[in-house]
Design a protein around this nucleic acid. Structure first.
Length: 465
RNA sequence: UCCCCUGUAGCUCAGUCGGUAGAGCAGCUGACUGUUAAUCAGCGGGUCGCUGGUUCGAGCCCAGCCGGGGGAGCCA
């Protein structure tokens, strides 16, 4: 094969790195074919970029293989790069030889027309060959790289936290259990399941967050970040939730909530700006076909100063709001989606960071304020989506943390000895947050369903492919 | 988990009052001197989600089940 000698389409159409009249070999998949008596056009995409390159065949009768060159077929196309004689593209290829590498017969499900997302989800193994899903997957790669670039350039260390965990982090009952037990014959001792007999000698789960381990490393390396998968067994049936998703969780020692907000704001702006400038080809497609306001929305986030508003102020604003809400507003109640969207879309018309939430509605690890009733938690809210980041300054005082864990009803405190130990010796103020990778990508692309942002989504009742 | 909507050809959908199945696209065959989701002509294509019920007769009405979508909650 011509793996090493072929020219990727992006080199020609995006980078402009190939001179006219150069002999090139294109390896790719046929998007559409148009054949008439004296000329045929074969449009090929090789995945390297959004755009297709058009092969022109001036004497189709000499290319009997054209009969089998159909939408979806894999082909090798050799010819000379020329300036296009037709309208609609700058370059095209005068084809000298054309080989069918892999046939796609008439049962190939992707047609040269728009398909519904619902249909494409059922062919998740083929949808990356469409424009939309090609663009999504290219952007995923670029933004994953941008995330590493951002933190590495700022002296954060990338750490790998365990996916199998014995702690249930926030005490929620929404975990996937990990076991090697034969489910038809589970060992029991005095009536109860004998977890000592299980593989790890204890109950274990798929992690819901790498935060607690991240705190351990931050209080040794200073600044760290995690970037990996997490798992939630919640029966959430929405367009924004998946059972398996990737999170970015930076954690900084010596940092307080203000530093945390600064990082969250700067990080989001960096990612959006990176997408707009480094992925312009694919972003143009999203702006044209998925969300006409996409560029305006992203640019406004990049160029705005995020508003910072305490929970208490936010409640006052919402109480005075002219709008009727479905859910009640009262100090002590959590903000609902409709409230968050009102704040970011109506009141401030830009991203908002809400902070200092009531102690009663937030997790045990958030630092208790001097007022004794609020904690140093923060949520970053953006127009159109609402909450995109959740984070906090962590409770670094041993006694206060232990009390709050007990108060929050965490049962097996012994399992958290290590988490408490980092407060016992050399404790230090530290802060961090979590950004959902897939949700950030939804915002960047305008795609409205997480099942179409993840390549192989896992949601309740769906783990195919 | 709750509320609402939905399931008919490969895809997107229509199907009236309950009377036995339709269109566009795709596919196939042919035509066509540069096309851009090419165009034009012809042809083939159905377990109406499943099970049961009502009825002389059900794609249509009723019940249950299964699948899909949107919204809410939980959150990232």
């Amino acid at each position: 094969m011509d793996y090493k000698t072929r020219t990727k389409i992006a080199r020609i159409l995006i980078e402009g790195a190939i001179a006219v009249d150069t002999e090139v070999i294109i390896l790719g998949w046929v998007r559409t074919v148009r054949i008439s008596k004296n000329v045929a056009f074969v449009e090929v995409n090789d995945g390297s970029c959004m755009k297709n390159i058009q092969g022109v065949i001036e004497n189709p009768e000499n290319f009997p293989v054209l009969d089998k060159i159909t939408t979806g077929a894999a082909v090798r196309m050799k010819g000379k790069l020329i300036e296009s004689k037709g309208k609609g593209q700058k370059y095209e290829i005068t084809v000298h030889s054309l080989d069918l590498v892999g046939v796609a017969d008439s049962t190939y499900p992707i047609q040269t027309k728009r398909h519904t997302y619902e249909f494409l989800r059922e062919i998740a193994h083929l949808r990356p060959r469409t424009n939309t899903f090609g663009a999504v997957n290219r952007l995923r790669s670029k933004i994953a790289f941008a995330i590493h670039k951002y933190y590495q350039e700022r002296g954060f260390y990338y750490i790998q936290t365990p996916l199998i965990s014995a702690s249930d982090c926030e005490g929620a009952g929404d975990l996937f259990r990990v076991t090697t037990f034969n489910l038809d014959n589970i060992p029991r001792k005095e009536g109860a399941v004998d977890w000592h007999a299980d593989f790890f000698g204890d109950e274990t789960y798929l992690t819901v967050s790498g935060q607690l381990e991240g705190e351990v490393l931050a209080t040794a390396l200073g600044d760290i970040y995690t970037f990996g998968p997490t798992f939630r067994a919640e029966n959430s049936n929405t367009s924004r939730h998946a059972s398996e998703f990737w999170m970015i969780e930076p954690e900084m020692a010596w940092a307080e909530l203000d530093d945390n907000m600064d990082l969250a704001e700067d990080f989001l702006k960096y990612l959006f700006h990176y997408a707009l400038t480094e992925c312009a080809d694919d972003m143009e497609f999203f702006g044209q076909w998925i969300d006409k306001d996409l560029h305006r929305t992203l640019e406004s986030v990049v160029n705005s100063e995020f508003e910072r508003c305490s929970y208490t102020e936010a409640v006052k604003i919402l109480e005075k709001a002219a709008q009727k809400f479905e859910f009640p507003i009262r100090w002590g109640l959590d903000l609902q989606s409709e409230h968050e969207r009102y704040l970011t879309e109506k009141t401030f018309k830009k991203p908002v960071i809400v902070f200092d939430y009531p102690e009663s509605i937030k997790s045990f690890y958030m630092r208790l304020n001097d007022d004794g009733r609020t904690v140093r938690g923060m949520d970053v809210l953006v127009p159109k989506v609402g909450e995109i980041i959740g984070g906090s300054q962590r409770e670094e005082r041993y006694d206060v943390l232990k009390d709050r864990m007990a108060k929050k009803g965490i049962k097996n405190l012994d399992n958290y000895f290590w988490y408490l130990d980092i407060r016992r010796w050399g404790t230090v103020p530290h802060s961090g947050f979590g950004l959902g990778f897939d949700r950030a990508l939804m915002y960047m692309t305008g795609m409205t369903n997480i099942r179409d942002i993840q390549t192989f989504p896992r949601v309740p009742n769906w783990a195919k492919f």
